[in-house]
């Protein structure tokens, strides 16, 4: 990378594309970002940020067990993801401990179980790649699985997009008019678990929650229409992924961290300069000059 000073913008973008692993990483990460970004609109509106954190950490032992048994790791992740939520609900109901405490308690427990399992089960699982993601070293079978899961989640979200919006906005009305709220609740959880699985590939388990929260939060500051929010969320997630991967390529930085940092910077930008909800309210600033 000693050529940095000679770079033109053109070669900054095209040079990495000559590498096969970079093309794959860019494509896969964009896809994953799109899925997580789509879902994050719902999670931010539903107030499920902490739940996203819980589920994404809880899938860890599922991934390890699935690897050990030779099952698709999405299956293991799914079982543990949904299982953790069920357990959170159960403990909350049967004890006097407050919900956020229960969430913290359950997901750290699952996460720790995952770490212990990794150390015990001798296999080709690379703890580092699970924790921090490895979009540059993605294998062919991972690619297939990621594409399959991503498409599944996107299709589910597209079909039930309006129902899920209603569920986030006013579940009581949904129930009153005969919409299956129970189903929607678990649909959202299922999508969350699946998104956590694909997300952990590009940014790793620890940071995947950022993929599930930040784009939605950014979009929330920029629009008052739900559909626009979804689009902005997806776009900002994809752009962050591209920026993150390019930056990590040229400056030799950790990829997952770079992607999430890019998202954080976009959020900060929206936080400061969003037309209506930013602190500086750009719209008003411009209006002042007219």
């Amino acid at each position: 990378m000693e050529l940095c000073s000679f770079l033109t913008l053109d070669s900054f973008i095209t040079d990495p594309l000559t590498h096969d692993f970079m093309r794959k990483a860019l494509l896969m990460s964009s896809l994953v970002a799109a899925v997580c970004g789509f879902l994050s609109s719902y999670l931010t509106l539903k107030g499920w940020a902490l739940m996203g954190d819980a589920v994404s950490h809880s899938v860890m032992p599922g991934v390890v067990v699935a690897y050990a048994l030779g099952l698709p790791f999405s299956l293991g992740a799914f079982i543990f993801g949904v299982g953790s939520v069920a357990l959170i609900g159960f403990i909350k109901q049967k004890s006097r401990v407050k919900e956020d405490t229960v969430i913290g308690l359950v997901f750290t427990g699952f996460f720790a179980l995952g770490i212990v399992l990794v150390s015990k089960i001798k296999s080709n699982i690379d703890l580092h790649s699970i924790l921090f993601g490895s979009p540059l070293g993605i294998s062919l079978s991972d690619v297939k699985q990621t594409i399959f899961i991503s498409l599944l989640v996107v299709i589910l979200l597209l079909i039930f997009r309006k129902d899920l919006m209603l569920y986030c906005f006013d579940p009581r009305h949904a129930k009153t008019v005969g919409i299956n709220v129970f189903f929607l609740h678990y649909l959202l959880l299922t999508c969350l678990s699946l998104a956590a699985v694909v997300g952990l590939q590009s940014v790793g388990i620890i940071l995947v929650v950022a993929m599930l929260i930040t784009p939605g939060a950014t979009a929330y500051l920029l629009t008052d229409k739900f559909d626009n929010m979804t689009v902005i969320s997806v776009l900002s997630a994809i752009i962050s992924s591209l920026i993150g991967i390019y930056v990590s390529f040229w400056f030799d930085l950790e990829t997952g961290g770079s992607i999430v940092l890019a998202q954080t910077f976009i959020f900060l930008f929206a936080f400061l300069f969003a037309p209506r909800y930013g602190i500086f309210k750009l719209k008003k600033l411009f209006a002042g000059y007219k």
């Binding site: 986030c168 906005f169 009581r172 949904a174 008019v177 229409k225 739900f226 626009n228």
Partner: peptide
């Protein structure tokens, strides 16, 4: 008070929810 008034949705879309069922 039972409604999240900051939810990104407009009048038309809320009323349309009455037809969802």
């Amino acid at each position: 008070e039972g409604i999240d008034s900051q939810f990104p949705i407009n009048v038309w879309d809320v009323v349309m929810m009455g037809r969802y069922g």
